[in-house]
Design a protein around this nucleic acid. Structure first.
Lengths: 219, 219
DNA sequence: GACACCATGTAATCGGTTACATGATTCG
DNA sequence: CGAATCATGTAACCGATTACATGGTGTC
């Protein structure tokens, strides 16, 4: 249930049409909750029906774009949502899966994929940093609003820094592994040397099923 | 299309029944791609139909659990997938949205939610660290397989470290903001002092629409 | 034989993604 | 006037989540 609230926030910051919203999502809010124009239009419709927002009756822009603004009820809903609670979303990262798969069936071409991701994340990091210097000049003390927005941007920056650092290390590792030993870019799918099923990452807990061991994951 | 390949990886590491797989997902692979038992059974069915895996004909466990193992075709599919490419998944984080919303409608109770997340991430971090010391003892040089698995675990550790660090800073900030000034736990939804729409995070690009400015996001 | 729980599933729903449709405006 | 682009949508699909169903096992 995050998308409608993202839209409410965006509309409170500045009343907009559907397309404007889409653009603004691409540029800032969407960094933490992406949305396509189809989703946005659909959600705008629902929000309007629920009377949380309304189309500004503006006379001239007829047959053209519709501007929406947030109604008091919408602001209340958003304020209530701010105090609500969601369990933290769990991470989903296919690249990590690829690496684990690569540990079993051979490296194949993961290196290329790793470098692709590295480029994307590095570019995003630059982007965020540019935003930061533009919008949050140093040593001038910030308003409450700016402070919060800055913290969110910092999350983006540190996240991307984490990714780029990690991906560089992964790149180094796969290059080294692919290079000297097998050099298997299209590894034949047969038995590998160092394959010891006992050392597999989660095999060690299975000997004693039913104990408290499994519950650790949920603690 | 990640779930089936996660399952193939898990089954190659060790043939298992549906329930065992579910447990192992909770404990290790699922850290990067969570799945419930319903998803897993459904996917096992599909994989079996596609003849990428098969139920081990094992005679004794009749009427009880079914153990699956990967067929050569499944291994090939996984090896091919390793070399495939997905664009990096985009981040989705409701908490970041909440903070941006809080910047507009008041802090409400975000503090509590921030601390809840902090606890969860701190616990996860401890878990990962424990896994690391257990499974990857230092200074013994690792096999290729272990090296890759270790890198994946490191990603988890650094990710959680990032979250805990950031959440602690956020907690400090919202405590400070909520404390001295308004102390508004249930902020009345009316005009705030430092609310300048011009300084809003993405409003600065709208004066000149259609320029190259929007394209920056995609570079 | 009642009860807890182990193990495997089915069905309904929901949010996100992709592909396609339609009218209106701008530009050559 | 025709083509490109802007702006707003509709429809189909797909993976993930939630709730419910069923039968078998082990235990008192």
């Amino acid at each position: 249930m995050s998308l409608p609230h993202a839209i409410l926030t965006a509309l409170l910051e500045k009343p907009s049409s559907g397309l404007e919203l889409t653009r603004r999502f691409d540029r800032s809010i969407g960094f933490f909750w992406a949305a396509t124009h189809q989703q946005i239009y659909r959600e705008l419709g629902k929000l309007e029906q629920a009377e949380l927002i309304r189309a500004i009756p503006g006379p001239p822009a007829q047959g053209r774009r519709k501007e929406y603004e947030v109604l008091p009820k919408g602001r209340e809903e958003l304020a209530a949502w701010v105090s609500r609670s969601d369990p933290p979303r769990q991470l989903r990262d296919p690249l990590a899966l690829r690496l684990r798969a690569a540990a079993v069936v051979g490296l194949g071409d993961v290196g290329a994929e790793v470098r692709r991701h590295l480029e994307v994340h590095a570019a995003q990091l630059d982007d965020y940093r540019a935003m930061e210097t533009r919008q949050f000049p140093p040593d001038r003390h910030e308003s409450a609003e700016a402070r919060l927005q800055h913290l969110v941007l910092e999350a983006g920056i540190e996240m991307e820094r984490f990714w780029t650092d990690w991906l560089r290390r992964v790149d180094a590792a796969v290059t080294e592994l692919a290079g000297p030993s097998g050099s298997d870019p299209q590894s034949g799918p047969d038995a590998k040397s160092s394959l010891d099923p006992k050392s597999s990452l989660d095999a060690q807990s299975s000997p004693d099923p039913g104990r408290g061991s499994d519950a650790e994951a949920g603690r």
